[in-house]
Computed example of a mutant assay.
Amino acid sequence: MTRTSPFGSPLFLGFDHLEQMLERLSKNGGEGYPPYNIEQTGPSSLRITLAVAGFTMDDLSITVEDSQLVIRGRQAEEAQNRVFLHRGIAARQFQRTFVLADGIEVKGAWLDSGLLHIDLERIQPESRARSIQIGMRPAGASR
């Protein structure tokens, strides 16, 4: 079965990066850890909150890569001399990815009581309409 792309039409010029982001998003769609909330905190601002209990600021990293917000967590190796009678708290790494629309900027992040908060803001773009003048074909240009 052939998979068709929503951007397969010749009318969508230069949208290859969107198709790649949708593919990456579909691969990450089944992950459930860590749980998160997305809330609107103002008319043009959002906050993502992730539950990252057990992680310190040094264990977490936040980057923006190709219009994607990537949050990674990796806990430091525990001391080898610890003996667990029961281990119910997993020390596992994670990567959570959010696709950012054009004009969304990360304003800041902070860790508080096991919750990682990331503030985002939508920057209102200015209208960029312009006229294209039609001229004569340059001499020597192929048809």
Rank of each mutant, 00 (worst) to 15 (best):
A76N: 03
V52R: 03
R72I: 10
G42F: 04
Q75M: 13
M57A: 14
A53Q: 12
L22V: 08
L46A: 09
L85R: 00
L46P: 06
A90S: 13
I71S: 10
R74W: 04
Y36T: 04
A90C: 00
F94S: 13
H17C: 05
N81A: 09
G42A: 15
I89S: 10
D58I: 03
G32C: 07
S44E: 14
S45D: 08
G29W: 01
R87Q: 15
A91V: 06
F55D: 08
A90H: 03
K27Y: 09
G103H: 04
A79P: 00
G42Y: 01
I104E: 08
L18S: 09
T41M: 10
L69K: 01
R72T: 15
R82H: 07
V99N: 02
R47S: 14
L50H: 10
G29E: 13
Q80M: 09
L100P: 01
D59Y: 01
I89A: 15
L50W: 05
S26V: 05
Q40D: 03
I38R: 08
S67F: 07
T63F: 02
S67I: 02
I48M: 06
R92G: 12
I62V: 15
E19I: 03
P34N: 12
E31R: 13
V64R: 05
A51Q: 14
Q95T: 15
D16S: 13
E105V: 14
V52A: 11
E105C: 05
P34S: 11
G73V: 05
N81W: 04
G30I: 00
E39M: 07
R47D: 12
I48C: 05
P43Y: 07
A90M: 09
A90V: 09
V52S: 05
L85F: 01
D58N: 13
L50K: 08
L85T: 07
Q20E: 15
M57C: 03
E23D: 12
E105P: 00
E78V: 09
G73Q: 02
T41A: 08
I62E: 09
A76I: 00
G29Y: 01
A91C: 12
F55R: 04
E78L: 11
D59R: 02
E78N: 04
E78M: 11
E23M: 09
G29L: 11
S61F: 06
R82D: 04
R87P: 00
V70H: 09
S45R: 13
I62T: 14
R24W: 03
Q75F: 00
V83L: 06
